[in-house]
Design a protein around this nucleic acid. Sequence first.
DNA 1: TCGTTTATGTCGGAG
DNA 2: CTCCGACGTAAACGA
Lengths: 249, 249
Amino acid sequence: MSLVEELRQSIQRKNTVILVARCTITYEGRASSKLGEGERIILIKEDGAVIVHRPFSYEPVNYQPPGSIITVEEAEGSCRLIALRPRIHEKMVIELKEVKHFFSSRLEDRAEFHMWGDEQDLRQAIILDPVSTLGEELELVGSEFSLGSAGYADIVFRDKEGNLVVVEVKRKTADVSSVYQLKRYVEKIRRECEKNLKVRAILAAPKFTPVAIVVLKREGLEYREVNLQHARKILKQKGNLPSFFHELA
Amino acid sequence: MSLVEELRQSIQRKNTVILVARCTITYEGRASSKLGEGERIILIKEDGAVIVHRPFSYEPVNYQPPGSIITVEEAEGSCRLIALRPRIHEKMVIELKEVKHFFSSRLEDRAEFHMWGDEQDLRQAIILDPVSTLGEELELVGSEFSLGSAGYADIVFRDKEGNLVVVEVKRKTADVSSVYQLKRYVEKIRRECEKNLKVRAILAAPKFTPVAIVVLKREGLEYREVNLQHARKILKQKGNLPSFFHELA
DNA sequence: TCGTTTATGTCGGAG
DNA sequence: CTCCGACGTAAACGA
């Protein structure tokens, strides 16, 4: 069977295809790119994702995400792979010059992927134990608190004086853009609620860039150091940590 | 030769390795993750990047970027692949249960990758032809204009009245955070220069979210519609467009 | 669909 | 190293 037919059949059967090939690639869509001849790894997945890797670097050099329409054309002795996203007029063309390796098979992978340590986990720990994370007793008003067009406030608390406290959580170093994000939220809330209600703002992160701290102070916003290790302890204590993440370093 | 030895030799020789294997994966570092048994594609690149793909989705399920230290251990009849980044205490462990496919070869790929249509290209077109992009004659003061700790203003112009004009360029829809980014820059410049100098601010993008426009107006900032198609025409006219991007749709 | 936010983001550039 | 901003960001989630 010819390569063209092999590829067509593999794609139709929703196999996962791996090609190692000397090829050139053009892309046209949101931007445009050209890649001259060289040896690359081409992955074609069952969901229509096409990913081209050079022999170096983490990121693919060219790609189409899942859902793209893949066609294979005969071309000067070898073949041409076209991956299209018609909705957004995006096209990637791979001219295969020489196929050095071909693999095609239906792969079985139904396992669940579990992750711990994202922003949501840190947020949860702060909600469950504001005293040990933010240093004061706070009553939860809401989390992922919708501010309409202004986005979402990570957490909204009420403090012991009855003031609103808006908290923006970052899982790693908070920079100046995090500060402005928080500022946007308090300003929106201040505009929306009664004038006599005080609205505080806290940026909670394991670390802060120097400029972030300058702007926080200038804007009259507060900040607290929180980190994932502590969050893990809290969640474990409260029984909110999946068992496979109990024994980490 | 055993799989362990094959892998070790391939890695040492800086081959590109492709494995298709039933495996489990754990990761611990900036976050933690567990992935149960299933069939995946594992890429090991000459620069130490390790990338694991499931048979679906664009993004790798687990990875380590270039420069990681890769070791191979014998383990219950099969083997264990460990990719380490010691500086940041990051570790990915792949337990290979059954290797369905193995490929290893030195790949040659020295071709250059050319892209057109990034923010820089749009910026260049605005600088070369402010009249047709921003609608007025402007004299260039600087681009990638350093504001010290506050970052960089994309372009700074002087208008016919002698006012400074700060321009922030976005290659796609500008949202509210772009507006605040621009606001940050003008405020910095206003703080730094004489009080009597007027500083205007323009957000230039192909599209604006409704909220972005509301905030622009509220903050007294201007905005102009610019797009890459027009930019391409300008750059082609002025001879600033690489020839391989001349005949696009 | 658009708009907003997160990401083990990655990558590149400047200090 | 850190800080900053772009990315064909992708992916998730809500309106």
